[in-house]
């Protein structure tokens, strides 16, 4: 049975604005990490805040651990945030500036003082921050504050923890490590988590499952690899990385396009849109290969790889390639698609 079940959750902040969250439904299994991925303003943080109980829902329900926490409608129910036993890590960490690190963690624990202290130290030990127990939050670096915030949320041992862009205030170099550590820790504690982010790389590497959100709705839910390789909409495809969207005329499992004859991932007929990731196109010298030819318009060197923009007929195609052979601007290249093109459903 699902640990958390969100049904048809809806929230409207202003009467004459569109709903910020519009009929969102999903489940989270015990110990699972779900990532809500979407551009800023898509309502993903509002979903999180409704699960935590900071916002009231206009419609829908939240069930957690066999209990109804939120139920909008004729018999409304709203369990207060302090009675939900769900952890929350804020984007800016929200550490209490007038308390030391250990007192911040103890604040979420109940029972005898000495007992709370022991448990708080255990929580700090999980994140490797016991040495800093007596420091004040402002004496810590961003990464350390983030660990304390995590320890504080882990302290009461909730079965679900909500993470609101917790890595966005960290340096790029620190971000990747912290992410891996936190993911490991959550799995070790068998704790379920919902992470909200707009960073596709973060979503892909952190999630057990990704839910792609757009304009208050969930567009697609699935394992990172599935969502990346089999996007069900142009929006989901572009959100998770660069993609070439081509208008083609399908005829069964094949279609003709400016990149030549493509294999499709399923059988379909008529004019459709397909998605091809830039790394699924190979470049070669035009003299050695026949097929479709194009002209390099620009190249973007990024160290580990190179992104070309190549003009084919009237259209620009993005191609990702390794740096072993490079093609200068205005060079002529041959293009070959090496994977099935993904058929996107018509709107």
């Amino acid at each position: 049975m699902a640990l958390l079940s969100v049904q048809n959750l809806t929230k409207r902040f202003h009467v004459d604005h569109p709903a910020a969250v519009d009929g969102v439904s999903f489940d989270v299994q015990p110990g699972e990490i779900l990532v809500l991925l979407g551009p800023s303003g898509c309502g993903k943080t509002t979903v999180l805040r409704m699960i935590a109980g900071f916002e009231h829902a206009d419609r829908g329900s939240v069930r957690f651990d066999g209990q109804t926490l939120t139920q909008a409608g004729d018999t409304p129910k709203h369990v207060r945030p302090e009675h939900r036993n769900i952890g929350f890590v804020f984007q800016d960490y929200a550490l209490f500036p007038h308390m030391s690190v250990i007192r911040n963690v103890m604040y979420g624990l109940h029972g005898k003082r000495s007992d709370r202290r022991v448990r708080a130290l255990q929580a700090l030990d999980l994140v490797g921050m016991t040495d800093y127990a007596e420091r004040r939050p402002h004496e810590l670096s961003g990464g350390q504050q983030q660990r304390v915030a995590l320890a504080r949320s882990l302290g009461p041992s909730p079965r679900l923890i909500l993470l609101d862009e917790p890595f966005s205030n960290l340096d790029a170099s620190l971000r990747e490590n912290t992410r891996q550590e936190m993911r490991k820790l959550l799995h070790e504690q068998d704790m379920a988590a919902i992470l909200v982010t707009h960073d596709q790389e973060e979503a892909l590497s952190f999630a057990d499952r990704i839910a792609v959100m757009s304009a208050g709705r969930i567009e697609q839910v699935g394992a990172p690899r599935d969502v990346y390789e089999q996007p069900t909409s142009a929006f989901a495809a572009t959100l998770l990385g660069r993609v070439n969207l081509l208008q083609v005329n399908a005829n069964g499992c094949e279609a003709d396009s400016i990149l030549g004859r493509l294999r499709l991932d399923r059988e379909v007929h008529g004019p459709i849109t397909v998605a091809i990731r830039p790394e699924h196109i190979l470049l070669s010298d035009p003299s050695e290969a026949n097929g479709v030819h194009g002209t390099v318009v620009s190249q973007d060197y990024k160290g580990h790889d190179l992104t070309y923009r190549i003009q084919v007929d009237e259209q620009i195609v993005t191609v990702q390639s390794d740096c072993r052979t490079t093609y200068p601007e205005e060079a002529s290249v041959a293009l070959r698609v090496v994977a099935d093109a993904v058929v996107l459903p018509a709107k």
């Binding site: 109980g53 900071f54 302090e82 929200a94 504080r152 009461p156």
Partner: peptide, 17 residues
């Protein structure tokens, strides 16, 4: 301004009324 609403929410989510 020092007592940001986030801090109050953090306190609520840690089980305080």
């Amino acid at each position: 301004y020092l007592a940001r609403p986030r801090l109050e929410e953090a306190s609520r989510s840690l089980g305080h009324g």
